[in-house]
Nucleic acid binder design. Structure first.
Ligand SMILES: [Mn+2]
Ligand SMILES: [Mn+2]
Ligand SMILES: [Mn+2]
Ligand SMILES: [Mn+2]
Lengths: 219, 219
DNA sequence: TAAAATATTTAGGTTTGCCTAAAAATATAT
DNA sequence: ATATATTTTTAGGCAAACCTAAATATTTTA
């Protein structure tokens, strides 16, 4: 249906749009795609012709309904494969992204619906991100970034914003795993670092860079 | 490492070479790749530069050691994915080929070694073809095509030569499945058709086209 | 063994998805 | 409001993997 490159553009635009309906800039997209602005302009013209995106010169781009639907299909596949790799093939959560990046482009309706069922219709991937169903619907959970909580607040760690290998390995090392209960013990206004308690046991000090990449669901 | 197209060429050359060390002709390869002779000549020059093949103008082509090793890696992946699809995702043996054709190009050492283990290190794929191990070694079984047997001979059905959807579905319909014992009841010299007995029960009449595509291991 | 048939290669294009450099539009600062 | 900086687009190219048509080699046949 669509080329590998088109699919990757769709995903990138989707992620840059976030929930909002905002336009995405050529430069932002070039950065996300690790490519050049001129290449992006090229591609956006082609994708607009195919009605995958709404693009107006100098005005940025957003996904059309078709584009959004297609992006969600790819994200569904990406996240299902990540679950497969972790649950069935002993991958750790910091190893799955690269491989899923390729697997997400395999085109077979049956493959993905059977995989979904084989995995027990999981609702979230190993990083806590929601897995869209076959119609593109997914659960939006009420979560906040840890750095927005106040002293004494507590909640459950439900997702990461940054899912780079380095960050995930840092979390492993500090025993910060999905599903664990986290309490803000102290906030240092000077550098925005935080002291947190994990599962009422270990107390760790984390930098602003860490706390602004952890999603917490309040309880 | 190598492009999707290069990998498909390697596999095609491997299959056309069969066990023999014979040269493969440009035309044969074009036919196998569903492409044109001129495109094949183009590609062979590039692949020879990369030392994947040994190619001499007008003389045909064969795989280098590197080419053979790489081809076997792709075949290993193809067949492991086929097993996965049949054993874990409820695909039937006539549905797996197309999807495996794409999955075989995913590049991850860990993925394939873990998949192998997850599947219990299978030795054959759903069509009876041997699965090479990580070093490219595989079992060669002593088998013959059914049409080469004589009246009264018997053996076990261990593989198909033609693995097209149509042929596999024909076999399903006639209850001819891998592992079943087959006995030649009668051979019609006129049209080379055969009457065979399956598991000492059903007697079926099969055409030459069928019998020359079934591999039998004598017992 | 020479003509005819067939197979293979070369020449010259196309499309996709990239690139650099230059031009044009938009945004920011004075 | 104008000058400057930044962003975006256009122009012109490139490599991969195809294609058709024409040229050349090889094989077959008479
Ligand atoms: Mn991708
Ligand atoms: Mn993920
Ligand atoms: Mn393939
Ligand atoms: Mn097979």
């Amino acid at each position: 249906m669509f080329s590998l490159s088109e699919e990757n553009y769709l995903k990138a635009i989707f992620h840059l749009q976030r929930n909002k309906n905002e336009e995405v800039s050529t430069n932002a997209l070039a950065h996300e795609m690790k490519s050049k602005a001129s290449s992006v302009t090229d591609m956006l013209k082609k994708m607009a012709d195919k009605e995958l995106v709404i693009y107006k010169k100098y005005q940025g781009v957003k996904l059309s309904e078709l584009g959004r639907k297609t992006a969600l299909e790819i994200i569904r596949k990406h996240r299902l494969w990540e679950v497969f790799l972790v649950e069935k093939l002993n991958f750790s959560w910091d190893e799955v992204h690269e491989v899923a990046e390729d697997l997400e482009h395999i085109k077979s309706k049956k493959l993905i619906s059977e995989l979904d069922e084989f995995l027990g219709n999981p609702k979230r991937d190993p990083h806590g991100d929601p897995i869209p169903d076959a119609n593109g619907n997914f659960l939006v959970i009420n979560k906040a970034l840890l750095n927005q909580l106040n002293e004494g607040d507590e909640g459950v760690f439900v997702g990461v914003k940054d899912s780079s290998t380095e960050f995930l390995q840092y979390l492993d090392k500090n025993n910060i795993a999905l599903g664990k209960r986290i309490q803000v013990v102290e906030k240092e206004s000077f550098d925005s670092s935080m002291q947190i308690k994990i599962e009422n046991k270990a107390t760790v000090n984390i930098s602003k860079q860490v706390s602004e990449n952890l999603f917490i669901k309040s309880i």
